[in-house]
């Protein structure tokens, strides 16, 4: 849209509205950040006060009480394998759909798209039953399988749209040079698809790191649970003892990696959101 000549007053009204909205977005985060540094007594005395000193008791308490670092390592393990598996599968499937010239490639594509139309939460119960039957209940494997497969529709959707835009001359010249399907895929297509892969990867990383319905229903063993479950555990403890400090501190520690990833890949997220997914 072009430059518009808004009056000073209009801009002022707009800015005030946006600043109020900014405050509504920021205050919850500031509130838990500020109060994560306070002792329980300080906290109950005045929730608005700025902490007099940076007191890390809550943080060490959160770490000791829940072994948050152990959950974090476990989560990183599960998330990274899931992201890798998802990207490998999604890119191969999309390549087959767009490039192999299969008779039923449209049907195959639609089959994956149906996955976008199903709310994941209704799959939780059948997944739970299945996991018990095949002996994967309470295992990291079931989380990894579920995560990497649940987000396949999204990955296939974005990547097929992307592969369609690639000129087929690329592959033809690779074929003339004697490269097979696999070599063409790995050496030519994948490097070109890198921006799309990064976007899907980051979305999935955040999804898996953030999601808690699956670990809640499929895992009982504390060592195999994810960071969200550690927060849940602290939240239950909080409702009994009315101590918010450790809970807030744990929240801050779990948000930090998200903030870092968001800071680095913010552009991929906000731009990738529309690049492949809407104009496909």
């Amino acid at each position: 849209m072009g430059n518009l000549h808004y009056s000073f007053l209009m801009k002022l009204v707009l800015r005030i509205g946006l600043i109020i909205l900014t405050l509504i977005i920021i205050i919850p985060f500031l509130y838990i950040l500020m109060n994560s540094f306070k002792t329980t007594a300080e906290f109950y005395a005045d929730i608005w006060s700025i902490p007099t000193k940076i007191d890390l008791t809550n943080y060490s308490m959160a770490l000791n009480k829940t072994q948050l670092h152990a959950y974090a390592i476990n989560t990183v393990f599960i998330v990274s394998i899931s992201v890798f598996l998802n990207l490998s599968m999604a890119s191969m499937i999309s390549y087959v759909i767009t490039r192999m010239g299969l008779k039923r490639s449209k049907t195959l594509y639609k089959y994956f798209l149906i996955g976008l139309l199903v709310p994941h939460i209704i799959a939780v119960l059948p997944l739970f039953m299945l996991a018990r039957v095949i002996g994967l209940y309470n295992s990291r494997a079931i989380l990894i399988i579920a995560y990497s497969v649940f987000s396949l529709p999204f990955g296939v959707f974005v990547l097929t749209a992307f592969f369609k835009t690639l000129p087929s001359e690329l592959e033809q010249s690779a074929k003339i040079d004697g490269a097979g399907y696999l070599a063409t895929f790995l050496r030519i297509i994948l490097p070109l698809a890198k921006p799309g892969l990064i976007t899907i990867g980051v979305f999935n990383f955040l999804d898996y790191w953030n999601e808690y319905i699956l670990p809640l229903t499929l895992i009982v063993d504390e060592r195999k649970k994810t960071v969200s479950m550690a927060i849940l555990q602290l939240q239950v403890a909080q409702s009994v003892k009315q101590e918010w400090g450790a809970l807030f501190a744990a929240c801050i520690m779990v948000i930090l990696p998200v903030l870092v990833v968001y800071g680095i890949f913010q552009r991929n997220l906000t731009e990738g959101l529309t690049a492949g997914s809407l104009k496909g």
């Binding site: 849209m1 072009g2 430059n3 518009l4 808004y6 209009m10 801009k11 707009l14 800015r15 946006l18 909205l21 900014t22 977005i25 920021i26 919850p28 985060f29 509130y31 838990i32 955040l206 790191w209 953030n210 999601e211 808690y212 960071v227 969200s228 927060i231 849940l232 939240q235 809970l247 929240c251 779990v254 948000i255 998200v258 990833v261 968001y262 913010q266 997220l269 906000t270």
Partner: peptide, 27 residues
């Protein structure tokens, strides 16, 4: 393009959708 700082709002307003649901709920 009336506001120069619109990119700031874009980055900030998008952030909650990247935060774990459990933390949003606790908050």
């Amino acid at each position: 393009k009336v506001l120069k700082e619109r990119n700031f709002y874009r980055i900030l307003f998008f952030f909650p959708s990247a935060v774990p649901m459990i933390i949003i709920s606790v908050m």
